[in-house]
Amino acid sequence: MRSRIVLAAADGLGNTAIADELGIAVSSARKWRSRFLAYRLDGLTDEPRPGRPRTVSDEQVEAVITATLETTPADATHWSTRSLAAQLGLSQSAVSRIWRAFGLQPHRQDAWKLSKDPLFIDKVRDVVGLYLDPPERAVVLCVDEKSQIQALDRTAPILPMMPGTPARATHDYKRAGTSSLYAALDLATGKVIGSLHARHRAIEFKKFLATIDRNVPADFDVHVVLDNASTHKTPAVKRWLAAHTRFHLHFTPTSASWLNLVERWFGELTTKKLQRGTHRSVRELNADIRAWINTWNDNPRPYIWTKTADQILDSIARYCTRINDSRH
């Protein structure tokens, strides 16, 4: 901006005209023209500002980064700001500032897993292609089961939230049984078809397919995205599919549940209803889940898939290159 002010002045524009053209204050145009006239190019740089002199050198910053990335303390798996500060002779706040500036978080550890499916690329292209360009006269459903949902009751009442104090629940609980939820998320509308069962065998999956068949209009094909669980491929299921030719299964790669959009919906169900819910019986748990599904379907919110298969595969390739080049 300062250079543009000088160049505009060289073209013969006055302070007001420069300010109008560049969208700045007239005082700014006047200031930097005067600075340039007095000091030439040196006048366009910032003047020294008052304040405490810098106490951490570039070499010390480099030492913090190198130690954080390439070493570990003798008595721990990762550095803390205090332990690294003691090791390098710096203050804890200095180490903390350097970590924040470079996005270093030794206390955190994320999980990752690469699929070893030999048909990984083909399956990614199949499923993502279905998301981005669904077929006409067809319904695309993302299907999976959330098994072993526990009906849990706390051993003492939950204390309500108060100003300055979060809600409090006991760490221990009483188990009252489990339930398994089959869910089919409609890609286009976001609506969910749900079915609760005591177990999650092939027979329950076949019953859920029949539930889907009843809920989807007969003149639509049904494309189902699901994982490679053995219950999805039994002879009984295959016979049912052979008798219902409008159903087309699209399997996600092994160890790639992130490709199934219904997993995102399961996450919402868990965080908004199950994680902090209390249920004294399986019947109470099932009633709560059904009510939540009905509420969701009153105002469904479809998830929009945006990445292409090529973008996903390129991202995975870059990540594989990074971990292969790593010395850890």
Rank of each mutant, 00 (worst) to 15 (best):
residue 195 S to F: 00
residue 210 A to K: 08
residue 287 A to C: 02
residue 127 V to I: 14
residue 159 L to W: 07
residue 100 R to L: 14
residue 215 N to E: 15
residue 182 Y to E: 00
residue 234 T to W: 03
residue 236 A to R: 04
residue 43 G to H: 03
residue 223 H to D: 11
residue 53 P to F: 06
residue 233 K to W: 00
residue 38 A to F: 01
residue 13 L to P: 02
residue 41 L to I: 11
residue 173 Y to W: 15
residue 252 T to A: 11
residue 170 T to W: 07
residue 211 T to W: 00
residue 205 F to D: 03
residue 137 R to W: 03
residue 179 S to R: 10
residue 119 L to R: 13
residue 248 H to P: 02
residue 227 D to M: 01
residue 71 T to L: 08
residue 125 R to F: 04
residue 242 A to M: 06
residue 262 V to A: 02
residue 143 V to T: 01
residue 12 G to D: 11
residue 182 Y to R: 00
residue 281 S to C: 09
residue 154 R to S: 12
residue 120 F to W: 13
residue 244 H to E: 10
residue 19 A to V: 09
residue 133 D to T: 14
residue 236 A to S: 14
residue 31 K to R: 15
residue 175 R to Q: 11
residue 103 G to P: 09
residue 34 S to V: 07
residue 72 T to H: 09
residue 10 A to S: 12
residue 281 S to H: 06
residue 190 G to L: 04
residue 167 A to C: 11
residue 253 P to V: 06
residue 49 R to F: 03
residue 251 F to E: 03
residue 298 D to F: 00
residue 319 Y to S: 12
residue 146 K to G: 00
residue 141 L to W: 03
residue 289 I to Q: 02
residue 88 L to M: 07
residue 238 K to I: 05
residue 116 K to F: 04
residue 59 E to M: 05
residue 236 A to N: 10
residue 62 E to P: 00
residue 174 K to L: 13
residue 172 D to W: 08
residue 322 R to W: 10
residue 276 R to C: 06
residue 50 P to C: 02
residue 101 A to K: 14
residue 204 E to S: 01
residue 257 S to M: 02
residue 321 T to F: 03
residue 82 R to C: 02
residue 302 P to G: 07
